[in-house]
Amino acid sequence: MSTATYIPLKTLCTHYKVETTFFQDLNEYGLIEITTIEQAPCIHQDHIKNLESMVRLHQDLHINLEGIDTVMNLLDKIHHLQEELKTVKNRLRIFEE
């Protein structure tokens, strides 16, 4: 495993075979956060999971940035609802035998 906390955008562009502009656009939409480390634009490795999901949405399902933004918001909502459902289900166990 790489010990680097920040991954240079250049590395990511090569790996995912996408243009730098794609990441810049995601950054402008507030979907990712680009940090400049030693004059190189980078992304924190904790955000790579989300980023990969966005890359797949774009490459696999041909979803544009507006669509990705909408999907990510809905996914966030699903996540909260799933957590809420888990809590409610646990609470319902009180009434089970």
């Binding site: 495993m1 991954i7 790996h15 790579i48 990969e52 490459q59 696999d60």
Partner: peptide
């Protein structure tokens, strides 16, 4: 279709 993940 999609590129293999960079992250494991």
């Amino acid at each position: 279709g999609s590129t293999a993940g960079f992250r494991g």
